[in-house]
């Protein structure tokens, strides 16, 4: 074991490999965080479209489009979406997007599909009387949703969103396929340079564990803070 540790230590500290891993950590965090935001945006929009009463034609068309979107992103592996996005779609539109931007987009859209389900259940968990009261007093459907229902829905789903964020952090480990040097790829490259993978991969797993634990704690603190603001006395 000590030979492997020496090799790892050599590349990690002496050859300053830790700089690449720190950079990789920053990229992983960046992709996960911005992906989550985009996911929340898309997810909320889709959830609202699905919740609107479908009397008129427009909500029905939008609802069908949302079904197709969610079906695609939940029905294909994230790696496939990433590869298609980077190697197929972006070149065909002619855009010259940075790899990381593509990754954020893809992860955001993928996350949006899952968040839409979470948000929809969060909205439906809000007492329907809230929406009714909002509409009875003259607010439009969208105003009542935005000001009354969705804020309460978000509070409902906060723990699940924490889980979604954790999932994203772990899912970003595949961006190495489009040559982004994230946390996973950084450690893999240390392994490549030594042809010794045991220590790098173990350390990588520990790093992910620590990150996930920190996020879980963070979510608990935010939850507690929001609950406190409920009990204003």
């Amino acid at each position: 074991m000590s030979r492997e540790w020496e090799l790892f230590y050599n590349k990690f500290i002496v050859y300053e490999g830790y700089k690449t891993t720190l950079n990789g950590l920053a990229l992983t965090a960046e992709i996960a965080v911005f992906g989550l935001f985009i996911g929340m945006l898309i997810g909320t929009l889709i959830a609202v479209v699905k919740v609107v009463p479908k009397y008129k034609l427009l909500p029905r068309i939008l609802s069908k489009i949302c079904d197709i979107y969610v079906g695609f992103f939940r029905g294909t592996p994230i790696v496939v979406q990433l590869l298609i996005g980077y190697f197929v779609l972006i070149p065909s539109i002619g855009l010259n997007l940075d790899k990381v931007a593509v990754a954020i987009l893809v992860f955001g859209m993928n996350s949006g599909a899952y968040v839409s389900e979470i948000m929809r259940s969060g909205i439906q968990a809000v007492d329907p009387g809230q929406l009714e009261a909002g509409r009875a007093v003259g607010l439009s459907f969208s105003a009542a949703m935005a000001k009354i229902v969705i804020p309460q829905a978000i509070k409902n789903i906060l723990p699940t969103m924490g889980n979604e964020f954790i999932s994203l952090i772990k899912e970003t480990s595949v961006v190495g396929y489009i040559a982004i040097v994230d946390l996973t790829k950084a450690f893999r490259q240390i392994g490549d340079s030594n042809y010794e993978y045991i220590i790098p991969y173990l350390v990588l797993a520990v790093v992910y564990l620590v990150i996930v634990m920190l996020i879980t704690q963070g979510v608990k603190i935010i939850e507690r803070g929001l609950k406190k603001s409920d009990r204003h006395n």
Binding site: V33, F34, F37, I38, L95, N96, L97, D98, V100, A101, I104, L105
Partner: peptide, 11 residues
């Protein structure tokens, strides 16, 4: 995050 994506087009 949305601005970021378009800004990164021309870096």
């Amino acid at each position: 995050s949305s601005c970021f994506m378009f800004a990164s087009c021309s870096k």
